[in-house]
Design a protein around this nucleic acid. Structure first.
Lengths: 336, 336
DNA sequence: TTGTACGCGTTATCAC
DNA sequence: GTGATAACGCGTACAA
């Protein structure tokens, strides 16, 4: 089952067998010999050993993908894009999950470095936590030092190629659109304190409203985890805390869905009692009632873009791929 | 950055460096030497090359996972279980996607064989297509011939270890539960013609109803793709074809959600105008209104079970892990 | 306990 | 065009 076996069976040298099967660069093999080798390989059910090839060639054929939770529709859509792009490039995807623990990202990068993955795509959001960020930055630097290339989705804080989503733009557009629909009393489910994407969206949203003369009171901004459960918790807190706002905006869809569930649990109906909006336009939304207003990010395309970025020729300075966002107004935020 | 570099830096032999870093089996290294090696490794930012280790040891540390579409919540939940179990076993997960084309499964197994993955978990459903099945069976046989072990989720038709879901049991239970709630006129969104899981569920459902004296007319059983879109198509066909049944049952949740959307589009309301049920209890359901009656499968646990099965000591005959199902009655199928 | 040397399966370099 | 043979980075008998 090794190439030597095939070579012996075909009565040629190891080198010839290799060239016949792999189709070496400039060296070409005589037709009859090639046929004999191929026949022998088929007969012996020979499959090349990718590890050995990687050793000999000095490069692997695998690409790493780091996510927080593959069951989250946000990440699974990105993963779909990454697998598709990787497939086209002839690479295998190694899926690494932090299981919601951002501090594990650096360790996963190390693991992918061991594996000498050709490139790494990091899909998780950055946190405003110096030690975690530093660890990741170091891990990525080490990885690049051995010839790897990485791309991340989110804030380009690490000096690596990044796919940058127009979070601020989208959030501001959404704020204006909601204001235009007549909303004035806002509440925000803001996500975790130090989550950069959450912060970026929230700040832009608040700023856009301020420009329109509408303030969001501090006690109408509630922090929580960036998850479904976090959205539930935050919404429950909001519902307990006083009179309802006109509209609740969650900094991502998964949280908005959690909020929707929490509201439903206590008989608060969307949009009758309160309007609701999210961010991301995850595929789950197509099955949610009422249809949720959100800001669309092309998640699959982002996965593809990040993969292509990670696979591109290395450049001296970090490249950025900017991805536009688009407000999608749906029934959860009707005209007032 | 190779082990030789570390050995030289530490002033020891390659073998000693290897033993110090890897912590070899019975050989032990004197404390001071070990410290010197570790220090040198840290200083040089050395990371072992997993490929080289795999070559030398004769086994890799990667596990293959084959799905049809990672963005589908059914597969992404299974994937979450697989990654968790693999992580615990110290293995990396290689994600391979057929992009909805079952005939690609065999090719993906070959790819994972090249990579000499320790084990493979195949999550896609079997089709009643001899040539596709044969190809997969052959690919798996070849894979096992080189020492790999595989487990699949679904019908144990291939002579490999399998996680077997009690589809028939669950479907029959559901049929009886719906009958008990007063439903008599059924329609079934049956999925693709040759899809074994779909067939298994449908047949058990129909048989259970028959035992209760209720027949499902042939024209109330409509085939379609096993996807959201398939559910939409099938539901549309059903809505066009005549008077509404009491209840529509889709053989999986994703299709049921498609059906729900199709109904909504034409103003048919669930459960007021027609009741609706599914199968799987995918996590998406928590955000769907009305709450959908379904049959619960513990998807994450199945991923874990399949991984453990694939990683278990090889046995002479295929092992089966049986997974029970549980009917979950919700508002989409109220008492009549 | 430590070191030497071979082997893992393949590619690439060099003669022929 | 073909065939030896030296890498690739590491683990591990075997000898010391």
């Amino acid at each position: 089952m090794t190439l030597s076996d095939v070579a012996r069976e075909a009565g040629v040298s190891l080198a010839t067998a290799s060239r016949a099967i792999n189709g070496s660069a400039n060296r070409t093999v005589r037709a009859d010999l090639r046929d004999r080798v191929l026949a022998a390989a088929a007969k012996l059910r020979y499959t090349p050993d990718a590890n050995a090839q990687a050793m000999a060639r000095g490069r692997t054929t695998s690409l790493g993908l780091v996510v927080h939770d593959i069951a989250d529709p946000y990440f699974s859509s990105i993963a779909a894009g990454v697998t598709r792009a990787a497939d086209r490039a002839g690479l295998q995807v190694t899926l690494a999950s932090t299981q919601h623990d951002p501090s594990r990202e650096a360790g996963l990068v190390d693991l992918l470095k061991r594996q000498r993955a050709r490139a790494i795509v990091i899909a998780g959001g950055r946190l405003d936590d110096p030690s975690t960020t530093d660890e990741l930055r170091d891990a990525l630097a080490d990885y690049k030092a051995v010839g790897g290339s990485a791309a991340l989705i989110g804030q380009p804080v690490l000096g690596v190629d990044s796919v940058v989503v127009a979070n601020a733009q989208g959030a501001a557009d959404l704020a204006r659109a909601l204001h235009e629909r007549g909303y004035r009393k806002f509440a925000i489910l803001a996500g975790p304190e130090g989550h950069l994407t959450a912060r970026e969206r929230r700040e832009a949203f608040v700023a856009a409203l301020a420009e329109l003369g509408t303030e969001v009171p501090d006690d109408a901004v509630v922090t929580s985890a960036f998850t479904h459960e976090g959205g539930e918790d935050a919404m429950r807190a909001l519902l307990r805390s006083g009179p309802l706002p006109d509209v609740v905006w969650a900094v991502n869809d998964v949280m908005a869905l959690g909020a929707l569930a929490a509201a439903r649990d206590v008989g608060v109906e969307v949009p009758r009692d309160v309007a609701l909006a999210g961010f991301d336009d995850i595929s789950t939304l197509r099955d949610v009632v009422p249809p949720l207003t959100t800001v669309r990010i092309p998640l699959v395309d982002i996965g593809i873009a990040a993969t292509e970025l990670a696979l591109a020729e290395p450049s001296d300075e970090p490249r950025l791929t900017h991805v536009p966002t688009q407000v999608v107004l749906r029934d959860s935020t009707p005209q007032r």
